[in-house]
Nucleic acid binder design. Structure first.
Lengths: 197, 197
DNA sequence: TAGCCTACCAAGCACTTGCTTGGTACTAGT
DNA sequence: ACTAGTACCAAGCAAGTGCTTGGTAGGCTA
């Protein structure tokens, strides 16, 4: 059990993971520092030995996750795939993120709107703009190259795509019978070909 | 201004509408009774002349809305449309609900998971089950009749549909340039035919 | 053995929460 | 004039909130 697996997380990382699970489950505002401490088996004051504030916990969680996610997106953008190829690659990467960073995606989905009211979380709005630019650009490229149909409102298709991908975090459970790749493929089939016979 | 329009809402109804807007905007738990009272221009204690509790406000909002929505769904179910016809009719009715009962839909989307932890809101879970039965039944009927393709996981298509419809409340704003019918038609086109050229 | 570090506890402070209480002013019906 | 009902205010309580403070116990290093 101690061999070549993960390199033994620090107590700090353990606490962060516990907080992530609670934030994801009941929301950031609705999770108290006492909830987190109880789940970790310590008193609430002891958390402040490891973290500055409750805000800084969720900040670290979201920032770490988003940085990692965008590393993948940037690699896909820089690849030589067609527009449609990039779209499908990004959808697959996003479902992978739902699988591997379930709590962080859930927190982002449920609490981003609230958190962006603090200037500390301004980077969330910035990332959203970057995400929109990426998607809308790819959709327009796909239409221009003839890969995608041209009679739809690109802005609306973008919202449709964005929401359908990320909202899956509400029902997808890591470790279930469906792999992220399964879900991504079915979603892409519906999206690209429709459910008409 | 006082002629044949709406029949002059009671003070109680006004307060309920104010609360609905705040619940939708910042979440139920994250809205205080003082917030509601401030927005109405009264003191927080005065709210309790009209309502038993903060919970009973959101209860009344959700129950009224859902009862009305299901009246429409039941009429569609009882019609002589084909399975696909019923599906599209229900999608359109749902986008109409997002238009006419924006706050209530937003509250349901954002806070239902939290509210169902109270037995008072057990009816929400029951309605969700009913909704799932309706959708999955129609999808299976559509596959059986040959209207819809048979190579997709019905359960997954159901979740996809349910989420894509209701999550639109996050960006749709009543009174904008897009009518609910416009949005519903584009969504149905993507869903049925896909975005492939 | 001294000094420092990590990890935690016990107590509590300042503030916010939903809700209650006892009261006032006004209106409408009888 | 009497009563009942509506709509509100002023004050405050009990519970819970994030966070701070002063302290302890054990381990590591020089």
């Amino acid at each position: 059990m101690s061999a070549a697996s993960t390199p033994e997380p620090s107590r700090r990382d353990e606490l962060l993971a516990i907080a992530a699970g609670l934030f994801a489950e009941r929301g950031f505002k609705n999770t108290t520092v006492r909830d987190i401490a109880d789940a970790a088996g310590i008193l609430s004051g002891s958390l402040y030995h490891h973290f500055d504030s409750k805000e800084s916990m969720v900040d670290e969680l979201l920032d770490t996750f988003q940085t990692e996610l965008w590393k993948q997106y940037d690699a896909i953008t820089a690849s030589d795939l067609t527009a449609k190829g990039k779209l499908t690659a990004i959808v697959r990467a996003s479902f992978d993120a739902i699988d591997h960073h379930h709590s962080e995606v859930a927190i982002f989905q449920n609490d981003a709107a609230y958190l962006t009211t603090f200037e500390r979380f301004g980077y969330l709005a910035e990332r959203n703009r970057k995400f929109r630019t990426l998607w809308v650009g790819l959709l327009e490229d796909g239409v221009a190259s003839g890969e995608l149909r041209s009679d739809l409102d690109v802005e609306l298709v973008y919202r449709f795509l964005r929401d359908t991908v990320w909202v899956a975090v509400r029902w997808y459970r890591p470790g279930g019978s469906l792999t992220p790749a399964d879900v991504a493929d079915q979603y892409l089939t519906i999206l690209l070909e429709g459910i008409n016979q």
